[in-house]
């Protein structure tokens, strides 16, 4: 649905986006993740035809963003960062205006607007003046606007920024529901959001793509090996030797606390040693009090990737 090839955008001498290529397939929810100023908004503005790229090409729903901009714009629903709205208009009036602008046939307008108002739970404020709405409602009015012409693709720039935790949950829930019908590209710098919503993550930093995968795969890729954390009652020395002898185990760290020992077992990349570890401990008369996988969070991945980049560049 979205195909980006070697896209670059230069402001004066600074590249905001530098040679990025990625694809978003139909029905996917893809997260564009990166620190502030990484080029997320610029990428989205190019995809929504707000500004052209300096070089490279982008294809949205089968149309070129530069040459067939009007066609592209008919296919997308775009929620810009901070959701700019006309404060003097009423919610319903605004949605009607947007529906007309987006060339929704007049006989469909009312039913479509009603549907969007209901979907975004803004029924109670539909006749209120936008200027008097809270941030959460404004965000949902913005979302209703992106949906009003039933676009194939939704491009959402920081859809949950500035909301309180309850509102964030509501908006995320809504996005998740929308994912069933629409292809979604969203940007954020909030990591749990990506983990929760996205099937795929594109991490960009300083205008370049530094990683692209599913959130879980990213975690696997980034870990040097799988780490298991264990708490075991029994003979520490014996157990340690047994664990070290397991084939895929690279390293065992033993912390002796008398009767109870703590182990950190580092396995080779991709190897699952949990069952071997279990049977070896049992064989040596150990009792496992706790065994858990030390999962690396996306937060760590993000930090590692963006920091690694910095080390390379400096």
């Amino acid at each position: 649905m979205i195909k980006v090839e070697h896209l670059a955008k230069r402001y004066a001498d600074v590249y905001a986006v530098n040679d990025i290529s990625f694809e978003v397939h139909q029905g996917e929810i893809v997260g564009l993740l990166g620190p502030n100023g990484a080029g997320k908004t610029t990428t989205m503005r190019i995809l929504t035809c707000y500004m052209p790229a300096t070089s490279g090409s982008a294809n949205v729903a089968g149309y070129d963003v530069f040459r067939e901009s009007i066609n592209v714009r008919k296919q997308i629903g775009y929620l810009p960062e901070n959701v700019p709205l006309y404060p003097e208009m009423r919610v319903r009036e605004y949605l009607l205006f947007r529906a007309k602008l987006k060339k929704l046939p007049s006989r469909e307008r009312k039913s479509k607007i009603d549907e969007c108002i209901e979907k975004c739970s803004i029924t109670e404020v539909q006749n209120q003046i936008i200027g008097t709405l809270s941030k959460g409602y404004r965000q949902r009015v913005g979302l209703a606007d992106t949906l009003v012409h039933d676009p194939k693709i939704l491009i959402l720039d920081e859809p949950t920024i500035g909301l309180d935790p309850n509102q964030i949950r509501q908006v995320r829930q809504l996005i998740k529901e929308l994912g069933a019908k629409h292809t979604i590209l969203l940007s954020t710098h909030i990591l749990p959001e990506v983990e929760m919503l996205c099937e795929r993550v594109i991490i960009i930093n300083k205008g370049k793509i530094v990683a692209m995968d599913t959130p879980t795969n990213l975690a696997i890729q980034l870990r040097a090996g799988n780490n298991l954390v264990l708490e075991v009652r029994g003979n520490g020395e014996k157990i340690k030797n047994a664990l070290t002898n397991i084939k895929s185990v690279k390293k065992v760290v033993w912390q002796d606390k008398g009767e109870i020992s703590n182990f950190t077992v580092e396995a080779e990349k991709g190897a699952d040693v949990r069952e071997d570890v279990f049977s070896n401990i049992v064989k040596n008369n150990g009792i496992i009090r706790e065994m858990k996988q030390a999962s690396i969070t996306l937060e760590e991945i993000f930090h590692q990737i963006t920091m690694r980049e910095q080390e390379v560049t400096t």
């Binding site: 503005r45 009007i70 066609n71 714009r73 008919k74 775009y78 700019p84 709205l85 404060p87």
Partner: peptide, 14 residues
């Protein structure tokens, strides 16, 4: 100033 130019210009209008 308010940024409403962005949703306006990303709607299918010339």
């Amino acid at each position: 100033k308010t940024g409403t130019i962005e949703p306006l210009m990303t709607a299918p209008v010339t």
